[in-house]
Nucleic acid binder design. Sequence first.
DNA 1: CTCCTTATATATCAGTCTGATATATATAAT
DNA 2: ATTATATATATCAGACTGATATATAAGGAG
Lengths: 185, 185
Amino acid sequence: MANEKKIDCVILGLLSHEALTGYEIKKRMDTALSYFWGASYGSIYPALSDLVARGLATKKEYSENNRKKLIYTITDDGRDYLKNWLALPVEKDELRYETLLKLFFGNEKGPAQAMTHIEAFEKKIENRLPYLLYAENILTEHLEADPTHKYYLLTVRFGIKTYRTYLEWCGEAKALLKKNQGNAD
Amino acid sequence: MANEKKIDCVILGLLSHEALTGYEIKKRMDTALSYFWGASYGSIYPALSDLVARGLATKKEYSENNRKKLIYTITDDGRDYLKNWLALPVEKDELRYETLLKLFFGNEKGPAQAMTHIEAFEKKIENRLPYLLYAENILTEHLEADPTHKYYLLTVRFGIKTYRTYLEWCGEAKALLKKNQGNAD
DNA sequence: CTCCTTATATATCAGTCTGATATATATAAT
DNA sequence: ATTATATATATCAGACTGATATATAAGGAG
């Protein structure tokens, strides 16, 4: 029962909330989960077929205005599989920030180049923060409507707190680079 | 000149500081870079051979007490390649936190299970933070000794700030779960 | 009322990377 | 002596990304 593929678990998790198409699963990944998890179509569609083959989900073809859709529903076995995975200890929390990587090797190109990367990072975070704040408002208002909202809210608050810290760090990092730009080297 | 493989860039970055063996490169990944980047032997060794084949690094066999080592040195072309990559805009900053993923689907197993994951996360961060604080002290003391230290310090400060925010969030998240544990559901 | 763009929807694949495994020697501890 | 840990290199199955392909629907511009 070991070696649970993460893609299977995320999909089953999303299907535990509601029946979805592969396309809708991808949309959830790119919105609600985007700042702590990601997945591509190249993993989603094969995983869905596999989940059906293993009896963890079922597939139904729907037609909406002549438009065919493959809607996937979690089975009882699928829910058991999900619950089993949820109870296992976390294997890996991983951050992979190219910005920090380029900054780490910043001496090769100097402070001006490093500054550019920090400013780009700052802008990206500033642009994303409003979406998280908006999500926090909506979720806080309708907290009682759905028991899953409480857990969603916890992850949103994580995003808000870390993003604000990132912005603080950007300010400090820029100050340090400016301070050392005049003297030394 | 597009499509720079990240593994090539990290290795060249580390080699820009000093000549290293594949084993030493892996050690750097697991210490100095570990909280914002990672790589496995399965990518490091093939990448090193490839860098030599492309003239971006050179390989020399050393013998220390009958013990053979393959030491890699960056070439001028390698340094140019690194500089070119450093000037390109960042493509992706990615967080992949299984803890948040399990928390997001926390309703399936309930608040007690979610609490367990948060506490495990908290402990992991608490254990790692001292290493970052130690690194900050050393780097601050010897800031003038090496121009690369300044950039290293910036990434360490990022780690310290975000880790402290994580711990704050853990406290708030646990409080929210406890508060809602009595009523509702 | 046609053209263009964007959204919906599924699918595949080359290239990349991880995690595991294998092999071998050196050093330190018990 | 033996066991464990550190040094050191290498390979590979399996997993995942990013790109690409295909096709329909809907909305807006001219």
